[in-house]
């Protein structure tokens, strides 16, 4: 008896310790986030002390060295690559997820899923060079060398799309798999074919989960850095032509911070303003996606 009481005490010590370390781990991630927001905000304030919000949000030329601070030059390129990426990732990712959840045999799934995981595990810089040395020449072969610049947002966007396919497909598959089996049975019981069941019953039932996946994928595409740094272009350019070079927000941050900036210069502070803008973009997208997911849970629980 005495022994067992001693044991109990020891075990509780360990538990306290583990609980404390788990708490510290949790607190660490929160503090990191707070620290990032603080640092971003502080430096961005320095920037906005010198550049008006109006100029920042309405200008279409971005050249900090010559006092042009229109975020749209970079934002537009980011939106272009993201849009192109989604054009690629959504249909393909969704098709893969439909195939995996509705059609694939056990064996097919066992083969396809690891392949997708490998795709997700490739370093993005490799994707960057894939864009530059494979996708761009391919586009130039199709549309002509005079039409497609060597650095262009189309190539980067397509490859970002490929990069996020695994993400779209795995999150969408989760959403599709969460659709109760009974709904499929109901559809089949009414004489629906597999395709009708998948497209007209399962897909709509999972639509909010899939939407959430899309939005998270969009914010991933917005934040993607190495591919655009390598393949999209290295000079700000406000253009809607996907075959022209244009620099995205993340690409610009990488290029500028890769050089040697004076710490208190306006270019240096501008990086934080861009970072803060990106932060708010991805944050609001994540908030939206969580709202959607919550709404989606309510339907089934």
């Amino acid at each position: 008896m005495q022994n067992s009481i001693d044991l109990r005490k020891k075990r509780r010590w360990g538990e306290t310790l583990i609980q404390a370390s788990l708490f510290i781990a949790g607190a660490f991630s929160i503090l990191t986030t707070v620290g990032i927001v603080y640092e971003l905000g502080k430096e961005a304030m320095n920037f906005f002390a010198q550049v008006s919000l109006w100029e920042y949000f309405t200008g279409a030329d971005w050249n900090p060295q010559i006092d042009q601070f229109g975020i749209w030059a970079l934002l537009n390129a980011t939106l272009m690559t993201t849009f192109i990426a989604m054009l690629v990732a959504l249909p393909i990712g969704l098709s893969i997820s439909l195939y995996l959840s509705e059609y694939a045999s056990h064996r097919a799934r066992r083969t396809l899923k690891p392949i997708l995981e490998v795709l997700a595990g490739i370093p993005t810089v490799v994707y960057g060079y894939f864009a530059l040395t494979f996708m761009t020449p391919l586009l130039r072969g199709i549309f002509g060398r005079d039409v497609v610049d060597i650095y262009n947002t189309a190539s980067a966007g397509i490859v970002i799309g490929i990069l996020i396919i695994p993400m779209v497909s795995s999150m969408s598959e989760d959403a599709l798999s969460a659709v109760p089996r009974a709904l499929r049975a109901a559809a089949y019981g009414l004489g629906a074919t597999k395709l009708e069941t998948a497209v007209k019953v399962v897909l709509p039932a999972a639509i909010s989960g899939i939407m959430a996946a899309f939005i998270v994928a969009i914010s991933r595409a917005i934040g993607e850095t190495m591919i655009v740094a390598v393949a999209a272009g290295a000079g700000s350019n406000f253009t809607f032509n996907p075959f022209e070079a244009a620099e995205t927000m993340t690409g610009h941050i990488v290029r500028i911070s890769g050089g040697d900036l004076s710490y208190d210069s306006i270019d240096y502070n501008s990086i934080f303003a861009i970072g803060l803008t990106l932060f708010f973009m991805t944050l609001s997208l994540n908030v939206i996606s969580q709202r959607i997911v919550r709404k989606y849970r309510e339907v089934y629980e």
Binding site: A182, A185, Y188, L190, G191
Partner: peptide, 17 residues
């Protein structure tokens, strides 16, 4: 085609959303 002529009602109500 079989299921179009022979319908089914399940144990747990399963209306579509």
């Amino acid at each position: 085609e079989v299921r179009r002529r022979i319908g089914m009602v399940f144990q747990k109500p399963n209306p579509f959303p």
